[in-house]
Nucleic acid binder design. Structure first.
Lengths: 157, 157
DNA sequence: ACTCTATTTGGATTAAATCTAAATAAATAA
DNA sequence: TTATTTATTTAGATTTAATCCAAATAGAGT
């Protein structure tokens, strides 16, 4: 019953190609994968129905839109049982773009994107105020050196 | 000369809508933003030329493809001057999907995606072997509670 | 080898992207 | 204010792609 068994190399190649440019016409994908464009449609529909391909999004340069500072936050909770409550609060803070439950010292590990240092300070203040949060550690991103999708065709098959 | 000045609310609305679903036809975007589809084209071309919209990518559920474990790595270097060299080495390890230069204790902060715990162990071994890396701390992601794009229309304008 | 089922294909139809010239709007100068 | 220039938007016209579907092919099980 493992869904991975339903996925072959044609699927992976289609995903890889569309992951580089999701707007590539299926006709062009079809040529590169050596199937008909109808097959690309069928496969993509399958992948979408299976929930493997969830959506297509834009890759945006946020700094060019004035969002110049991003930061990772290690969040310590007063009690770890407060996790769900705190996540709900974080969801209401639009600058929080991701949040994870991780092993290690932090109870929650989150990422925020802000316009400038002032904005960052405001957002950090807001997060500190959230009930259940003990303290936070901030890792400000000074440079993004790698940011890329998984490559499927390096070592496996 | 600030590029932000060239971006108006029409641009931001187009970006917001396409960021939710990059495959939405421009004709549909046009209706929602109350301009012609030609204008959507012109604006998107401008945004692409400016490098604000870099590409479109798929949002993939990697766990359904058998990539079940992701982890953040705090990397300590022997000397911080080795940063660029180590980044180049990390680029050759396909499981490394992102790497940042951040404030705080770590010299490099990275994210990796692996199939299972065995695969994770292999990748961690490979990373430890990289010349210049002193030691690493691993935060294994047990749950992804938030993962979303920036929202432009919450508090501003 | 035969039957049943699933997948792929190519062509027909519908829809969207792209291009262009004209219209409109905005900005500047007289 | 009006005239002139410049930039932006628009509405077709054309090209291209997405979508749908019936027929062909391939694969699995008996």
């Amino acid at each position: 019953m493992d869904k991975i068994l339903d996925i072959d190399n044609i699927d992976l190649k289609i995903i890889s190609l569309l992951n580089e440019d999701a707007k590539t016409p299926y006709t062009e994908i079809a040529k590169k994968v050596f199937v008909s464009s109808g097959t690309v449609h069928v496969r993509m529909k399958k992948l979408e129905d299976m929930g493997i391909v969830k959506s297509a999004t834009l890759n945006i340069d946020f700094s060019k839109l004035g969002y110049d500072i991003s930061a990772f936050l290690g969040i310590y909770l007063e009690k770890s049982s407060l996790y769900d409550n705190v996540i709900e609060k974080l969801k209401t803070i639009s600058e929080v773009v991701s949040a994870y439950y991780t092993t290690g010292n932090y109870s929650i590990f989150a990422k925020i994107i802000c316009r400038d240092t002032n904005h960052l300070r405001l957002v950090l203040d807001n997060i500190q105020k959230v009930e259940g949060i003990d303290r936070t550690e901030t890792l400000i991103v000074l440079e993004e050196s790698i940011n890329r999708p998984i490559q499927f065709f390096d070592k496996e098959k």
